[in-house]
């Protein structure tokens, strides 16, 4: 249980880091919080030739609120920073609500948002939340930068749009829509374990309580965050009644997820969990949306 030898480079500026990735991108692995990378190196499932440690690149560990009420988050911001931030609680309440579900306190003290997003574990919370919130990621290389929508970033199991020489340098979360409700819920065998299934929902209602926007995204029921747009569309223009919410969740669980069974949960059981959790997430998001409207 010891990592294989590697060459260690710890740049202190982003420019240096990008130059290193231009030269060594295919052989190098970026080390952010290391809470997923170092376990797989300990198991020797990963044996990168070069480790580029971003922990000294202080320009990547800041976050701020934008004028319009969105958030701009550097990739090296640690989970515990977001978990305990008043700004995040106020302006990105879905992120705030999700943080305690991510592993354990000791892991959250070290793990970073950029590391989790780039690792692309289908059972991880943050990719699902970023897809639900329609966040965008700024990817930079020595040649320039580009913005990618969270939804387009995730391509397959542990596979993202990130090129070998690129680094996620910023995560942009748009302002919460006004009068919107949100919710995240998951089931894990023990708190802090990877969840068997999870669901995030965002619901926006008009002044009479009819649904104007609905978004439902699932965790760990496919290779990537699974977006149930067709099911969510059933809600648009309707009052979010219990029957409609159940129908929406059922539709999503039957048609828009691809759960793989494992030793803890069969495919059918995961579909059942997706239905139950999808229903709970929409119910809570709709209740919060009604509250935001004063209905």
């Amino acid at each position: 249980m010891k990592p294989a030898p590697f060459k260690y480079i710890a740049p202190s500026t982003l420019k240096e880091a990008l130059d290193i990735m231009t030269r060594h991108g295919y052989d190098a692995k970026l080390l952010a919080g290391g809470q997923s990378l170092i376990p797989v190196m300990n198991f020797r499932l990963a044996q990168p030739a070069i480790i580029v440690d971003l922990n000294k690149v202080t320009e990547l560990n800041q976050f701020r609120k934008t004028e319009r009420g969105g958030l701009r988050i550097g990739p090296m911001v640690r989970h515990s920073q977001l978990e305990h931030s008043q700004t995040v609680a106020e302006f990105a309440p879905l992120v705030h609500e999700t943080m305690p579900h991510i592993a354990h306190p000791q892991i959250r003290n070290r793990g970073t948002i950029g590391g989790s997003l780039a690792h692309a574990d289908p059972a991880a919370e943050l990719p699902v939340i970023m897809v639900a919130l329609q966040a965008r990621f700024r990817l930079q290389s020595a040649d320039g930068e580009r913005w990618v929508n969270a939804e387009d970033f995730y391509q397959a199991l542990f596979t993202t749009a990130l090129e070998p020489e690129e680094i996620i340098v910023e995560i942009a979360i748009p302002p919460m829509p006004r009068h919107a409700g949100y919710a995240f819920t998951e089931i894990a065998r023990r708190h802090g374990d990877f969840a068997q299934v999870g669901a995030a929902a965002l619901i926006k209602l008009d002044e009479s309580g009819y649904c104007r926007q609905a978004r439902l995204v699932f965790l760990n029921v496919g290779e990537i965050p699974m977006v149930a747009d067709q099911a969510a569309a059933l809600m648009i223009g309707q009052l979010p009644s219990s029957d409609l919410i159940a129908e929406t969740a059922m539709n999503a669980a039957q048609n828009e997820i691809e759960p793989a069974g494992d030793i803890h949960a069969t495919t059918d059981y995961k579909r059942h969990l997706a239905y139950v959790l999808g229903k709970r997430a929409i119910q809570q998001a709709a209740a919060r949306a009604r509250e935001a409207r004063g209905l």
């Binding site: 260690y8 710890a10 290391g34 809470q35 170092i38 376990p39 300990n42 480790i51 440690d53 922990n55 515990s80 306190p105 000791q106 892991i107 003290n109 070290r110």
Partner: peptide
């Protein structure tokens, strides 16, 4: 801050 020392390299 409490962290896992098995998930860090000494050099860090």
């Amino acid at each position: 801050d409490p962290v896992r020392s098995c998930l860090m390299f000494a050099v860090q």
